[in-house]
């Protein structure tokens, strides 16, 4: 019995501790956010990395998501003559769910993993210690700009993805499947609320927080050389993706 408790308990204790450490990192990031010096340039650099450099990947994902959605829902709706709803279905799915979630997953793969790898390398090669010796707080200098950049950039990427997805859906629906373009757009305007878009963007900002926080956390807690860096990278992607899906459920439950 005791052996069983130990067996079951250790991962549980580890999990609770891990949650605690991530929360502490978040808290201290927030507390460092308001202390000078404010390194705007460093934040901009991260914004470029997280936002500008991800835009192509996000656009491609968004466009094809919208196109596939249009194709799939078209066949479903045609069964009872509801082809006119394809547009609004695509738009609603993109703005509420697929835009934010797919963007977050792509950015996790591209940026979250890079954060873990970069900070992990800095950790094992003592660069983070070096920052400390120069009286520069690594959380303020490394973690905070990344988190701010991700929180700000994810909504921007998401709105682009939403838009491109709807345009992709329009292309498939109107040009290939010959749905009337006026009805296609009118139904979107009719059914999609501004709130759907905004809630999607709030979600995206939240996902940005998750993926950057996890990436940074896994990075700065890396131990064990190059192998450790690899492990941290993988774990950060897996953990972020899982958390994005879980939190998506709860955010949806709260918002809609």
């Amino acid at each position: 019995m005791i052996r069983f408790l130990e067996f079951a308990g250790r991962p549980l204790v580890f999990f609770v501790e891990e949650c605690g450490r991530i929360m502490l990192l978040l808290l201290s990031t927030i507390s460092w956010m308001f202390r000078p010096p404010f390194r705007i340039r460093v934040i901009f650099k991260q914004m470029e990395f997280v936002g500008v450099n991800s835009v192509i990947v996000v656009m491609i994902t968004g466009a094809f998501t919208g196109m596939v959605l249009a194709l799939q829902t078209y066949h479903g709706f045609r069964m009872f003559g509801g082809e006119s709803l394809v547009g609004s279905t695509v738009a609603l799915s993109m703005t509420r769910e697929l835009g934010p979630v797919f963007t977050a997953l792509m950015v996790t793969g591209r940026v979250g993993s890079a954060m873990a790898a970069e900070l992990g390398t800095m950790k094992v090669t003592e660069q983070i210690d070096a920052l400390n010796t120069m009286s520069v707080n690594p959380i303020q200098y490394l973690v905070m700009p990344r988190i701010i950049a991700a929180i700000l950039m994810l909504p921007v990427l998401t709105i682009i993805s939403d838009f491109v997805g709807i345009v992709g859906g329009y292309f498939v629906g109107v040009n290939l499947l010959k749905i009337n373009s006026g009805i296609f757009i009118a139904k979107i305007i009719d059914i999609v609320d501004l709130e759907d878009i905004f809630n999607g963007l709030i979600k995206a900002a939240f996902f940005g927080l998750i993926l950057s926080l996890i990436g940074c956390y896994k990075g700065i807690s890396t131990i064990g050389g190059a192998e450790g860096v690899g492990r941290a990278t993988t774990q950060s992607v897996v953990l972020s993706s899982v958390l994005i899906f879980i939190s998506d459920y709860f955010l949806t439950a709260v918002m809609f």
Binding site: M47, V52, V156, D162, D193
Partner: peptide
């Protein structure tokens, strides 16, 4: 970054107006 954010805001504005 500025261009990027402005594009985002324009799209958001456009969609908001259409809706």
């Amino acid at each position: 970054v500025g261009v990027f954010v402005v594009i985002g805001i324009i799209i958001l504005g456009y969609m908001s107006m259409r809706l």
